[in-house]
Design a protein around this nucleic acid. Structure first.
Lengths: 168, 168
DNA sequence: GGCAGACCTTTGACAATTAAAATACCTCTC
DNA sequence: GAGAGGTATTTTAATTGTCAAAGGTCTGCC
């Protein structure tokens, strides 16, 4: 096999009791998201021949049918600027996205989904939602809601303690 | 600036109410881990000149002083085999890790930390733990413990629904 | 003994990633 | 208008990442 052994992959394999709670939580968050993204990437690839970053990018464009500037895409997808360029290039080559420069500001590039992109993404999104329901199938609905809340707290806390401080 | 704008980065920027709870949770987990890893990577780079994958790899070797086979490293770090090769190569070039082939099985390569690797990692680990306490500083201890529990459920559920099914 | 199949790592091709520098364009001020 | 400074994207270099295939090496069976 050419990939890590699913059954034993575990970033926290020896998360000793002596690790601080924050570290333990972090390792578990990390390994869980890695486990799920690996699975989603695999299915995306198998069923649609697409990659996860491409899916993420298309998701943003899907709900802004008029398109988005590349900088805005960068912010929303948390992907650095330089990376957006190549990502959009490949999607454009596949005919899922088009790039246009508005006449009133020629610094800007706006990307938006083509018709093909819209229908392709639509199918992917539906499958994606189903996969998540599948993967989280054993988890209580109430727990899912609670997790959503509590992870929000973690996110807020982290956002407030970044080294590059927030604007005033 | 050369990176996404921290204050507005948000994968879930328009997570409509109509998204299913599993999808909403997933997007929030993803954006939160991305936010925190970006911050940790930045600090690791600034203070130690190291990358996050290098840190992860060294963390595994740190608690197995005798070293680990590359395949075992691959499983524990959830990094594919081919990638481990280059990762270890670079760490070896930096003098933090050494690679050896045991005489009794010459298919195998065992990597372990050098003395320099041990003391370097030790400092990094301490800082790492502090950063997490910092980033999660606004979150209740009880909530952190609860999250650890509940995310465990999510992880277990996901592990049980992977497409490449578990061994019998 | 030798060979078939299993095991472990490396290689190669390409995509995604960050960080930083370069390029192109706009706006504001004088 | 001409230039300074800011904004938007692209480019560059290095690393990380997957996946698939190829390379050694071992083991067990004949």
């Amino acid at each position: 096999m050419t990939e890590p052994d699913d059954t034993s992959m575990d970033l926290e394999i020896t998360t000793h009791a002596r690790s601080k709670p924050e570290t333990r939580l972090w390792l578990r968050m990390l390994s869980t998201t890695k486990l799920i993204s690996t699975e989603i990437r695999k299915r995306l690839r198998a069923e649609f021949g697409a990659t996860l970053p491409q899916f993420d990018l298309m998701a943003q464009l899907y709900r802004e049918k008029e398109g988005l500037r590349l900088g805005e895409l960068s912010r929303r997808t948390m992907v650095t600027n330089g990376n957006i360029t190549g990502l959009v290039e490949r999607l454009e080559a596949d005919g899922l996205v088009i790039r246009e420069t508005p006449t009133d500001d020629r610094r800007v590039t706006v990307a938006r989904l083509t018709e093909a992109g819209i229908s392709t993404f639509s199918a992917m999104a539906e499958a994606h939602e189903g996969w998540l329901r599948d993967l989280m199938g054993d988890v209580d609905e109430a727990m899912i809601a609670a997790l959503w809340q509590d992870i929000g707290c973690v996110k807020t806390s982290a956002a407030n303690h970044l080294s590059g401080p927030a604007d005033p």
